[in-house]
Amino acid sequence: MDMFNVYEVFIQKDHGSPHVWVGSVDAGSPDDALLLARENFLRRDPAVSIWVVRQEQVHRTDYEDRDFFARETDKTYRMLTGYNKVNAEKWRKYKKNLLDLEKDFVKD
């Protein structure tokens, strides 16, 4: 009994940004979906690109499958926070010397 197909809509607001999902439209064809997405989601905001994807073509994980996203053991080795604090402390030791150096340059 479906009348139209559902197309999920992704908008790219400028060339520096990724396409972001904004919602969906009912449309008879991909061309129609693009035309309709323009007005349904861009009445105010600027954009440079629209993608539409048939809803059935979107494959997704299950919200209930929490283990899929499990991150139990220490992963700080791959994060900024795993390094910046220790590095900052070390740099502090050198800072005084650096400042002295700068002073020397200024003197010259």
Binding site: V6, G23, S24, V25, D26, N40, R43
Partner: peptide, 11 residues
């Protein structure tokens, strides 16, 4: 437009 957004969620 609001009707459309919410109707899509309901659908």
């Amino acid at each position: 437009g609001h009707g459309q957004l919410i109707l899509r969620v309901a659908e």
